[in-house]
């Protein structure tokens, strides 16, 4: 009996050591959790989460420093996805970080008013603005994330935020109104 207990204890110790060693020896480089969180974030790179971009926010979530409800562009949907990934309870967006836009937007430069100061180019986190010093600047619509970071630096206020209207190729079918969703069990 005693020998069995001793043998098992010895085995447990040995396996513990092996596992401990393996954990140190075969440590995975990079942090897959950060990657997974970053995949959920919308990559708007707007800084509204109080981090300098989506990836740093992902890191902060993974480190337990930031909450999961700080990204307005991701909206409640994003919070739910993060909650699912991290096994937490979803919660409403933190209003301190801002509110979700009702519709996707892009920046639009009124080109004849642009003085070519390049300040917006410097502000754009995804290099979505082209133009040279003293020449008019243009937003590449397909690259613009709608982060609005280029709006405040413009000294002549020639950048507008315009909503992205659905086109024939991006339109989605509306969700059918479903009476079945009303509680009817009693009826």
């Amino acid at each position: 009996m005693l020998s069995a207990v001793l043998a098992l204890t010895a085995l447990a110790v040995v396996f513990g050591l092996v596992l401990g060693f393996a954990a140190v020896r075969f440590k995975v480089e990079g942090d897959p959790l950060v990657e997974q969180i970053d995949k959920i974030l919308p990559q708007t790179q707007c800084g509204q989460c109080n981090y300098p971009g989506c990836r740093p926010y992902a890191q902060a979530i993974a480190d337990g420093e930031a909450d999961i409800n700080q990204c307005p562009p991701g909206g409640d949907e994003g919070v739910i996805k993060l909650a699912e990934l991290l096994g937490r309870e979803p919660k409403p967006l933190n209003p301190d970080n801002g509110v979700e836009k009702s519709m996707p937007t892009v920046a639009f430069i009124r080109e004849d008013e642009c003085i070519g100061c390049t300040l917006c180019i410097q502000a754009c986190p995804v290099d979505a603005i082209v133009g040279a010093r003293q020449q008019m600047h243009t937003v590449i619509v397909d690259e613009c994330t709608g982060c609005d970071l280029c709006i405040p630096p413009c000294p002549v206020d020639c950048i507008d935020v315009v909503p992205v209207e659905p086109t024939v190729s991006t339109w989605t079918w509306p969700k059918p109104i479903d009476v079945a969703e009303l509680p009817r069990e009693a009826a």
Binding site: D38, P42, Q43, G53, C54, R55, V126, A128, E143
Partner: peptide, 21 residues
Amino acid sequence: WAEEREKRKADAARERHEFRN
């Protein structure tokens, strides 16, 4: 399809942001 479009756009934005950084 819309989700896939958004995903592609997000991936492109991530790449451009990393490139800029």
